[in-house]
Simulated scan of single mutants.
Amino acid sequence: MSGLLDSVNQRTQLVGQNRLELLTFRLNRRQRYGINVFKVKEVLQCPKLTAMPNLHPFVKGVAYIRGQTISVIDISLAIGGRPVEDISKCFIIISEFNRSVQGFLVSAVERIVNINWEAILPPPQGAGRSNYLTAVTEIDNELVEILDVEKILDQISPADTRLSTELLDEINLITPAVKTVLIADDSMVARKQVQRAIESIGCDCICAKDGKEALHTLQAMAAKGCIYQQLALVISDIEMPEMDGYTLTAAIRGDQALKDLHIILHTSLSGVFNQAMIERVGANAFIPKFNPDELGQAVKNAMIPIIDTPA
């Protein structure tokens, strides 16, 4: 396992090319899963876990790794499967999501696969609202499921979407002509978190489940009239099936009818992001998930210049 991620720091060239690398793994069942390598800090044989009082049922225990206390989550149990019985044969994937580090308990870790985001597809329509998927893909003629980790983490420790009273008072002093925001995110939980925060400051929201749907929505709006009279800004995740946030941003900047839209990239890639790429594709701001005041402040900054809407 030690050599599996040795070259992870060399993989930043994939960013902005609508590509990613998936680390594939398996749980108790034969089903294969994938996680973005950018979110993985380390993979190791599961160490001895310490039980602590009042842990969430999904948390198998706590591990002390390199001087850091890390909660280890039984992913199989979290998504409705059988709990892991024998951790001695398991691995943990240590990852960083939404400004926190946690370990995911898995039965087997396989390999890293380079893949195009266009080959990452939304979950099948029949999957239902209660599923734990953000996307699926096919590798070696086998279905690979990409889990909605944000949904799992929100079940364990729900995010607070309330803005501070001070920031709300500041935002209430702003009266922009346009108060509609487009939110693009493949995680239903993340979309709802952003939507609640944005609606609390008096804005309306249009939601898209990936970059491709967001771009089509924007183009349809622009076909009806000036986009700047309909939309204040775009808040987009970076990791999304079919079209990622970097590619969406570049497409917006390349469209004459959309090119001046204010774009905030809002992502769970809190530990790793490419500032040079953000500037190259032309995003206005980057915010790691999820801090409602930081998001609200970024929206406030976007609203101030559009008090006088472009003609």
Rank of each mutant, 00 (worst) to 15 (best):
M1E: 10
M1R: 05
L4W: 01
L4N: 07
D6P: 05
R11H: 13
T12E: 12
Q13M: 11
N18C: 05
T24P: 08
T24G: 09
Q31M: 13
Y33V: 00
K48A: 13
F58D: 09
Y64G: 09
T69I: 13
T69Q: 15
I73T: 13
D74C: 05
R82V: 11
P83R: 13
I93P: 07
S95V: 11
S107P: 00
V109G: 07
V109S: 08
I112N: 10
I112L: 12
I120D: 00
G128N: 01
S130I: 11
L133E: 08
T134P: 04
T134E: 10
D140S: 12
D140C: 04
D148A: 06
D148C: 07
Q155D: 10
E170Q: 15
N172S: 11
A177T: 10
I183T: 08
V189R: 04
Q193Y: 10
E199K: 13
E199S: 11
G202H: 09
A208Y: 07
K209Y: 08
H216R: 14
A220N: 15
A220F: 11
A222P: 03
G225Y: 04
C226G: 12
I227F: 05
V234R: 00
V234S: 00
I238T: 06
E239N: 14
M243T: 04
D244Y: 04
T249G: 03
I263L: 07
H266N: 15
L269S: 13
L269P: 01
S270D: 03
G271R: 11
F273R: 10
I278V: 15
I278C: 15
N284C: 08
F290V: 01
N301S: 14
N301H: 13
A302M: 10
I306S: 11
